[in-house]
Design a protein around this nucleic acid. Structure first.
Length: 634
RNA sequence: GCCGAUGUAGCUCAGACGGUAGAGCAACUGAUUCGUAAUCAGUAGGUCAGGCGUUCGAUUCGCCUCAUCGGCACCA
């Protein structure tokens, strides 16, 4: 006699075991129609699931986020069904739900083409409309292996073989298509009404580059056509923010074939870079760092000692002179250790904070390059904190605060934190790794910050906290990092004199806040869609004259503002004022200063905002006060 | 690096069963001197990414290379 408790707390008693869909019907036929799945005692199940005991039941429709996930998961199956029906020789592998959609990986001798995608999508629509019932069944592991082997689905069989022998596996069937799946799924294919195949890509079987490459089809799926359309519109809008497009449009930088992965900064982009760097340099001074500059090219032997050569030699640019092999630095730490090693450091002097806007080169694989986000030449706002073990936690704590202050000043609120722990290939003993990982976890715990664990993703010399920001289409990029390192100072012979007079290797913290200035600026561009706040804008104001008569007055204003340190230009071309306003507005300049006969006579300026607001007439002093207010604190 | 797609004027893009290419914007010249998102007219601009091949002839077809884009793997 199961007693069912519904989310509102009400209870219903049934004579006998009852399926979820029947429970839904007992509440209302409308609810039964929209039911996609249910949560029984918090566990997601199919609508065909039979309840035998007292429990909590929540019916899931497409209004719940879980319902949307079920739709996406079933859409992946529908995709696989369509592919199998059009290309019977293709083998199915995996098809999970991802943010905003799903994908399915296929093993297939021939190549899918973009045209195939259109055919497959049409087939999906057709299959959905045929309204197949989706049924669940259970097999023992070995039966399931046999079943899929007999179908010629060797990848599926391999997947199931990795499941423990005593476990049962569930199969889902729609029409003559059967897939191994944990579920749950929608009850029938007509629930899938709004999907679209998005792109074709390669993906390694089981995510391992030693394995063969499969063909992955990405799709998106929503509860209804309107949501789908809204998503597609969002994508179009997001693409307009792409920093590579805006970089061209706003004349910030360019790339060209002769220097793949290396930026040509144009004047306006470089101004932006300089502003970001100047901001950071000012913070370094406030926080007690010493800024240094180490050589770009260092002897190979140093990289061998540091351990970089062993792990990354293929990814380093090298050069040769007389009898020496050199590497162009991919990191700044060995250089900073050399500076730390000059002279003798007492424990009284620790912590020592050495910072550099360090230009590094890394020979990244060609397929990874991505505008400013992943470049082969970039500058890190790098620093190394040399301290005692006792100081470690306090220093990490300060660094976390510093990092958040900087992100906030640049207008970032959404920051993802990850803790990456010891990788397989590493230096240093397990005790040292235990200590380092514990220190970082403790520092995060002290701040009550939520974080995700990335087991095995640490650097070879130590674990790291990563701070990541999003780009315009939701891709996540690591920016800041705090890494604890008990190994490198010792390997490179750095010591300090401890209280007992002995020589001890310091603990080293590697830290970057912006990370790569290039990447950070890329994200800045996308975050602001090229519409920078006044303190960051490469050009803060543009002076426009109405006609030649005011040219001298306009030049005077430009000069006066520039002498005060503002980034101001003038446009004295013989064009209509509307034309010039349009052009500079599209260049996202925060303020447009219009001067005509009236302004010249009254010795003032007519100010127009980027968004077309008339800010009225004011004197030059009033305007520079306005700029000061805009940029205060930066 | 791997899989797929793409590469035509400074930018955005069109185009040709194989007969050496166009548009808009930008640039340049001239006229216009104008009050808050495009004044008018004219001119010039291209080894059709690079190389090799097939062909009487290749930007178009084939092969190779490079770069870019989307993923995957990688990311000190």
């Amino acid at each position: 006699m199961p007693i069912i408790t519904l989310p509102d707390g009400s209870q219903r008693e049934f004579e006998q075991a009852i399926s979820v869909v029947e429970i839904a019907k007992s509440i209302g036929t409308g609810l039964a129609k929209v039911a996609l799945a249910a949560k029984v005692n918090g566990r997601l199940v199919d609508t065909s699931y039979v309840v035998t005991q007292d429990c909590d039941v929540a019916i899931i429709s497409d209004k719940e986020p879980e319902g949307l996930d079920v739709i996406r998961h079933s859409s992946a199956h529908l995709l696989a069904q369509a592919v199998k029906s059009l290309f019977p020789k293709a083998q199915v592998t995996i098809g999970p739900v991802i943010e905003n959609g799903f994908y399915y990986d296929f093993a297939y001798e021939e190549r899918f083409t973009p045209d195939d995608l259109i055919k497959i999508e049409a087939k999906m629509t057709e299959l959905a409309q045929q309204n197949f019932t989706i049924t669940r069944s259970v097999k023992s592991r070995d039966e399931a292996v046999q079943f899929f082997t007999a179908l010629g689905e060797t990848y599926k069989a391999e997947l199931i073989e990795s499941i423990p022998a005593n476990e049962e596996v569930s199969l889902y069937q729609q029409g003559d298509f059967v897939d191994l799946c944990r579920g749950p799924h929608v009850p029938s294919t007509d629930k899938l009404k709004a999907f679209k195949l998005m792109k074709l890509a390669g993906a390694y079987w089981r995510g391992d580059s030693n394995n063969e490459m499969l063909q992955r089809i990405y799709g998106t799926a929503w509860a209804n056509k309107k949501d789908l359309q809204a998503y597609l519109n969002r994508l179009v809008e997001a693409e307009k923010r792409d920093h590579r497009k805006l970089g061209k449009k706003l004349d910030l930088f360019h790339f060209q074939e002769e220097a793949p992965g290396m930026v040509f900064w144009h004047s306006k982009g470089w101004q932006l870079y300089r502003t970001v760097e100047a901001y950071m340099r000012q913070r370094l001074d406030e926080y007690g760092y010493q800024e240094v500059n180490a050589p770009l090219v260092l002897d190979r032997s140093l990289w061998e000692k540091s351990g970089h050569w062993d792990k990354f030699s293929a990814d380093m640019f090298t050069t040769h002179s007389e009898n020496h092999d050199y590497a162009i630095k991919p990191m700044n730490c060995p250089g900073h250790i050399q500076i730390f090693k000059q002279g003798i450091t007492s424990h009284h002097q620790l912590p020592v904070l050495i910072a550099e806007f360090g230009l590094v080169h890394r020979n990244e694989a060609s397929g990874t390059l991505h505008g400013l986000m992943r470049a082969r030449r970039f500058v890190q706002d790098d620093a190394h904190v040399f301290c005692t073990e006792d100081q470690l936690l306090g220093e990490v704590d300060k660094l976390i605060d510093f990092t958040f202050k900087v992100y906030k000043d640049f207008g970032f609120e959404q920051i993802k934190i990850k803790l990456s722990t010891r990788p397989e290939k590493r230096v240093g003993s397990d005790e040292v790794w235990d200590k380092s990982e514990a220190a970082l976890a403790q520092a995060l715990a002290n701040k009550n910050l939520p974080w995700d664990l990335q087991a095995g993703e640490g650097a070879f010399y130590g674990p790291k906290i990563e701070f990541s920001l999003h780009d315009s289409i939701g891709r996540v990029w690591q920016c800041g990092t705090i890494q604890v390192d008990f190994s490198m100072p010792e390997r490179l012979g750095a010591t300090y004199i401890a209280a007992d007079g002995s020589k001890q290797p310091p603990v080293m913290i590697h830290r970057a806040i912006l990370g790569s200035l290039e990447r950070f600026i890329g994200i800045l561009i996308e975050n602001y869609a090229g519409e920078f706040p006044t303190w960051l804008a490469p050009i803060q104001a543009m002076v426009l004259n109405i006609s030649d008569r005011q040219a001298d007055y306009a030049k005077e204003i430009e000069k006066a503002l520039r002498q005060q340190g503002w980034r101001v230009r003038s446009d004295l071309r013989n064009e209509k004022i509307g034309f010039k306003i349009r052009e500079h507005t599209m260049q996202r300049i925060p303020y447009i200063i219009v001067v005509g006969d009236k302004e010249m006579e009254n010795q003032n300026l007519a100010i127009r905002s980027l968004h077309g607001d008339d800010l009225g007439s004011m004197t030059l002093d009033e305007f520079s006060a306005k700029l000061r207010a805009d940029t205060a604190g930066k």
